[in-house]
């Protein structure tokens, strides 16, 4: 019996010692997207208007430094769901896209700051389909950690 006891002890020792080592020297923290500020825009279930210019305001934060962010606005006429917000917005009936709006752009964040608040002006064309859209925000830090937020919006 003694041998097996020693054996188990060795195993425990090895596993407990080795399992504990953490990545102390590496960044393990993803950036965050904050749209809780009063002036943040758009928020979940907000409405944008065709032919008008709005300012995208959101705060990005990271412990080491921000790399870039991207925006992706595309139609949700088929009611696919990838909002990251828990609250459901009221959707229009399913519609067939004719000239849906979409925007996919990436924006580098120079000098890797730990926090920025965006003030990005975006003009929505006048001739696009009205209806439900998704507004996807992604931010990535200098080490490649990512955060994503998907909002449901309407464009009227």
């Amino acid at each position: 019996m003694r041998i097996s006891e020693i054996l188990i002890f060795i195993v425990f020792l090895v596993v407990s010692l080795s399992g504990c080592k953490k990545n102390d020297d590496t960044d393990q923290t993803p950036p965050t997207i904050d749209i809780s500020a009063i002036d943040a825009f758009p928020k979940h279930c907000d409405t944008l208007y065709r032919g008008e210019t709005f300012t995208f305001i959101a705060t990005f934060t990271d412990n080491e430094g921000l790399g870039s962010y991207s925006l992706d606005i595309h139609n949700n006429f088929d009611h696919h769901s990838h909002t990251t917000e828990l609250q459901e917005c009221e959707l229009w009936p399913v519609q067939t896209p004719i000239n849906p709006y979409f925007l996919i752009e990436g924006y580098e964040i120079p000098n890797a700051p730990q926090t920025i608040t965006t003030h990005l002006e975006i003009t929505i064309p006048i001739d696009i389909d009205q209806g439900d859209y998704h507004f996807m925000i992604r931010v990535v830090d200098v080490n490649g950690w990512q955060d994503m937020k998907g909002l449901s919006i309407k464009i009227l």
Binding site: S70, D72, E108, R138, V140
Partner: peptide, 14 residues
């Protein structure tokens, strides 16, 4: 994983 997104090819992914 780089700190950049692709938008040239229209995907908007990291």
């Amino acid at each position: 994983p780089t700190p950049f997104f692709d938008f040239e090819h229209g995907a908007g992914n990291q």
